[in-house]
Design a protein around this nucleic acid. Structure first.
Lengths: 180, 180
DNA sequence: TGACAAGATGAGTCCTGACTCATATTTTAG
DNA sequence: CTAAAATATGAGTCAGGACTCATCTTGTCA
């Protein structure tokens, strides 16, 4: 792969994240190209389909999210790591927006979607650890947690909550998971 | 207004609710026309803009939602009416889908939006009653409740939760609002 | 450095979906 | 029953956005 091609690919990917975060997944490929300072054909050379572009973003994002989870597992208190991660994901969605696309677009399609599967697995591990540490009610199930996560994440993005409101709301949701 | 015109208007409105519930707000006006058994021009005669059509749906929906609230206030236990209403709204969104458009489309626009204002007011009344009856934590604020409502509603629709999962998730969320 | 393959360009195609309007049809008042 | 007014019709216009490709440009390697 030529050096300039690699540079362009990276630049397009970065810019696309911004654009889709701001305008939602219906933003035009034209705008991505324009903001990347590149002709539209170049975008389609690297990502033959708009869907491919979105998929690439989601893949990168997933890696970032899983990195964060591994850091928390390695360094953090198992009792609080779960809560920290939940909060981190909601914060990310408020800023990055794409998390929502990740969770939603896949959620509505038929197949579970590998991104969601991976996240499921990660959150599940943190949840188990927290349960064992006694900081999460033992009867809380993973699918409920994922549902709360999707809901909070969607809400934070769709309704553009203020920082303050977002914090208070997440606190309420997480309180629901704590033992008594 | 001619009799057939009135009939058509009503039919279009009813069908449009179905279509938008199934396909989301991006469903085409063509499809609404087709399913209503009417030419596309007729749809545009009654609703000059797609936005007008959505607005009409939302208005009708709002009236239905507020009716329900008034019934609950009049007949129900003030301690549980709030919880029943919250549940009712989420159930509705799971079926009607349009609630989401109502809460979201408006939420992202600049002005608060009269639909959301009205719902705010209604939920606020129920929340106050429940607080007074002691079935809701005194420190829970209306904006937090609305945030949870939007989130749950979005989540239920976007992720197509099963009935069972929806019930459990709503139960968790509502537990977060109960005193201890 | 030269030449060629990889890459970039952007005007153009195709399609979808909102909206229009000249014409045909129906309702209804008288 | 009839004519004017109100409606309905649906082919057509227009705009936006995904995607293509003939042509030009540039990186790289001998």
């Amino acid at each position: 792969m030529r050096a300039d091609a690699r540079r362009n690919r990276a630049r397009i990917l970065a810019v696309a994240q911004e654009v889709f975060a701001e305008r939602g997944p219906s933003a035009s490929t034209e705008e991505v190209a324009a903001r990347a300072g590149v002709a539209i054909g170049t975008v389609f050379r690297h990502f033959p389909t708009k869907h491919d572009l979105l998929a690439a973003i989601m893949k990168e994002l997933r890696e970032r999210l899983i990195d964060k989870a591994e850091t928390l597992i390695a360094e953090g208190d198992p009792g609080t790591a779960f809560y920290d991660y939940f909060t981190f994901l909601v914060e990310s969605s408020a800023k990055i927006g794409t998390v929502v696309a990740l969770l939603a677009q896949e959620g509505t399609s038929i197949e579970p979607g590998e991104q969601v599967m991976a996240l499921n697995h990660t959150v599940g591990a943190l949840l188990d650890a927290a349960r064992e540490a006694g900081t999460v009610r033992p009867d809380v199930r993973l699918d409920e947690v994922m549902a709360l996560l999707i809901a909070t994440t969607h809400g934070a993005l769709a309704a553009a909550w203020s920082d303050d409101l977002r914090h208070r709301t997440v606190a309420l949701v997480l309180d629901a998971l704590r033992p008594h």
